[in-house]
Simulated assay, not measured.
Amino acid sequence: MDGSTRRTRFENRVELEREFLTCVNQRFGTHAPLAGMTGDAIDAWRVRAREAGCADEVDVVRDLLIEISKRAELIADHSRDVFDREGRAIAGALDDLRVMLAKAMSTAR
């Protein structure tokens, strides 16, 4: 694997993380902005979102963000053939997570 392939995967991961950060911050950013997609950043966001009076749905959003974060990490992984436990390719699983996150965000108050 050459350096450009690694860079492309890293750039794809960053782009993916920005996509989800933007989604969450459009809904919660005024009161509790999400600063990053690491587990610690997501957990800190959850605490702030709950303290800001956001609904319990933040727990569902938090769980989805943790899973998305793990998938994004796998995308940057050097192994090209990474699959989840059900045998689906990562890209398909991310599409499912996008839909689930959109649904959770629409029900959040």
Rank of each mutant, 00 (worst) to 15 (best):
L34D: 02
K70D: 14
F20D: 04
A44H: 06
G36R: 03
F83M: 10
E57D: 13
R6P: 02
Q26G: 15
R27A: 06
R6I: 11
P33W: 01
A49D: 02
V24M: 05
A41F: 00
S4W: 13
H78Q: 13
S79T: 12
V14L: 14
V82T: 12
E19I: 09
W45R: 01
T30Q: 13
V61N: 03
R71F: 14
F28H: 08
A41D: 08
G87Q: 01
T30K: 10
R27L: 06
S69C: 03
A89S: 07
W45S: 04
V82K: 09
K70F: 11
G92W: 03
F83G: 00
H78C: 11
R88T: 11
R18M: 15
A102F: 00
V47N: 03
F20L: 09
L64R: 04
V58T: 08
V99I: 08
L64Y: 02
S106I: 08
I75N: 13
R71E: 15
H78T: 15
V99F: 01
M1L: 10
R13K: 11
V58Q: 06
D84K: 07
A76Q: 09
T22C: 09
T30A: 15
S4R: 13
A104P: 01
A72D: 08
G36Q: 01
V60H: 07
V60K: 13
R98A: 04
L16D: 06
S69D: 04
R7D: 08
S79W: 03
I75R: 14
A41E: 08
D84T: 15
T5G: 09
R80Y: 08
V47K: 03
R80H: 10
E51A: 14
A35L: 13
D96M: 04
S79P: 00
L21I: 13
D59T: 10
I68N: 02
A72K: 09
A35Y: 00
L101G: 03
D59V: 10
R6E: 13
D84E: 12
A104L: 06
E19F: 09
R80L: 12
R50K: 13
A55P: 00
L21R: 11
M37Y: 01
L34K: 03
I68L: 02
R109A: 15
E86T: 14
A91Q: 06
F20N: 07
H31W: 00
G29H: 07
A32T: 02
D2K: 12
I75T: 12
G29M: 06
G39N: 09
R88L: 12
A32W: 04
G39T: 14
V14T: 15
R46P: 00
L101H: 01
G3Q: 14
T38M: 03
L21F: 07
M1N: 11
G92C: 01
D84I: 13
K70T: 15
V24A: 06
C54K: 11
W45H: 05
